[in-house]
Amino acid sequence: MIRVDGRGDSKSLIQVRGLTKTYRRGGEEIHVLQRLNLDVDKGDFVAFMGPSGSGKTTLLNLLGGLDVPSAGGITVDGDEITHMSGSKLTHWRARHVGFIFQMYNLIPVLTAFQNVELPLLLTKLSSSERRHHVETALSVVGLRERMNHYPRQLSGGQEQRVTIARAIVSDPTFLLCDEPTGDLDRKSADEIMALIEELVGKHGKTVLMVTHDPMVAARAHTTLHLDKGVLVEASQLEQGVVAGGVA
């Protein structure tokens, strides 16, 4: 269950309380996120929408431990991440977060296999164990046959599949997707979304996704809108009501 009222149960996988992010630009303070609350349970699939500059990516960066909030806290699976040191946060990310970016961001000089293997190089797994995990992840995304191909030898959709395999290979606690279909044609986008749905439905992954595309957002269990730094659930946005709990 996803809630944005701050009354979620303490068993929620992700708990965000009073999250505030303020930037200073040219002496002016820009309040990107204002005392934002969010509760996400394991296996939830939530999409964040909102106009450009509304703070969607900032929220994703904060949830992924890539940025630090000006105030408030984020707890993931019992770990309060907002006060972690830089190096602790790095280790935490390696264990708990899988990132899927709009531009894929694969290493062009490494094959699909080697790209997917990267997060596992940070673990103590042996070479054969790593191979097993990588082949499994590539099988999940349907690219096991192309594991020795370089990114330039793959289509955009296939590159994004490799990115997804890289994100899931270490079995992270949750996945963060920043416009995962933003650079793809409709057909490829559908395939990627079907894959993400499969990860949620079949493999029980928790996914938080930022998108501009309402059709993509519609595939999520819940769509939340960021408006003026506050999260609003889609149906309530239509009714003009500030969000409560959403099943």
Binding site: G64, L66, G86, S87, T90, H91, R93, A94, R95, F99, F101, M103, N105, I107, L118, P119, L122, R166
Partner: peptide, 14 residues
Amino acid sequence: TGELAVLKAIGVTD
């Protein structure tokens, strides 16, 4: 720059 950022994002230490 982008590749190094991704490496850091997935947990490669500074």
